[in-house]
């Protein structure tokens, strides 16, 4: 077993963010990923990544494209095996084993086109041995949460991009994961829809108190949504920045001086060279 008290003493998370629980919901421990390239050359994609997420936190991983953030999220989700390191959920190792504890929302549309919206949301529930009646209740509840109860019997192709992502979020949440992982979920949306979806997601987070780890290259999106930001450089964590903004945020906060100060801080961290 892991000695949580000692690991917690070494870090200073309690000072940077008020945490409702003592133990992290999820820990990313010394994750490295090395690919063997041509000949005997080794390509290090991730080097010694350490991240902790506490229950009910909204964390963003920010980095430019090619910094390895998608690789990291895939490792966290268990879809890819790391070269070294561990992923712990509630202190249990889940490295390299994907499961319903880490729900994932991808950038591309991953709804199943042959299933209706309701059937898509119910997809994960059938594996839990849930009765049909309970499944229906769960699906209705989460479709209500994302405001798509009137589209239960539509097929995905009849929905707009933003609606598709809301279904994808409802589908991930319906399994009640310990952590919701999001891989640039709004990357394919237009600017207006993107802001609407950010507002929607923040509202959803306030309502449901889910634990979220999201990766994005959009600094404003990261600041607006999260309590803490990890800045990812070439395969390394360059810095951890707490977002000292009120929990309840309006979109207009993006124009406030505090917001812009944080943005400056994040961007300068991103530009730093190791």
């Amino acid at each position: 077993m892991q000695d949580y008290a000692s690991t917690l003493n070494k870090t200073s998370y309690q000072e940077v963010a008020p945490v409702p629980h003592r133990f992290p919901k999820m820990e990313v421990e010394n994750i490295s990923k090395v690919y063997s390239g041509k000949g005997k050359q080794l390509l290090t994609v991730l080097q010694n990544i350490n991240i902790k997420i506490f229950s009910r936190e909204f964390i963003c991983l920010v980095g430019t494209s090619g910094c390895g953030k998608s690789t990291l999220l895939n490792i966290i989700a268990g879809l890819l095996a790391p070269s070294a390191g561990e992923i712990l959920i509630d202190g249990q190792s889940v490295t390299g084993r994907p499961g319903s504890d880490r729900g994932m929302v991808f950038q591309g549309y991953t709804l199943y086109p042959w299933l209706t919206v309701a059937q898509n949301v119910a997809f994960g529930l059938q594996f839990q041995g849930m009765s049909k009646g309970d499944q229906r209740d769960q699906v209705n509840y989460f479709l209500n949460v994302v405001g798509l109860e009137n589209f239960a019997n539509n097929y995905p192709r009849q929905l707009s991009g933003g609606m598709k992502q809301r279904v994808a979020i409802a589908r991930a949440l319906a399994n009640e994961p310990a952590v919701l992982l999001m891989d640039e979920p709004f990357g394919a949306l237009d600017a207006q829809t993107k802001e609407q979806m950010q507002e929607f997601l923040l509202d959803l987070w306030e309502k449901t108190h889910m634990t979220v780890l999201m990766i994005t290259h959009d600094v404003e999106e990261a600041i607006y949504l999260s309590q803490r930001i990890y800045v990812l450089g070439v395969g390394q964590v360059k810095g951890e920045i707490p977002i000292c903004l009120p929990t309840h945020r309006e979109l207009s906060i993006k124009l406030s001086p505090e917001f812009i100060d944080i943005k400056r801080q994040v961007m300068s961290t991103m530009r730093q060279h190791h």
Partner: peptide
């Protein structure tokens, strides 16, 4: 079939058998 369509099933607790019958078969139908 896009990788993500298969991967997302794993993150919902699907086994490989489930992925074969509930993702790959209907997707290729």
């Amino acid at each position: 079939i896009p990788n993500e369509m298969i991967n997302v099933a794993y993150t919902m607790g699907a086994s490989r058998w489930d992925v074969l019958w509930k993702v790959i078969v209907p997707a290729t139908f």
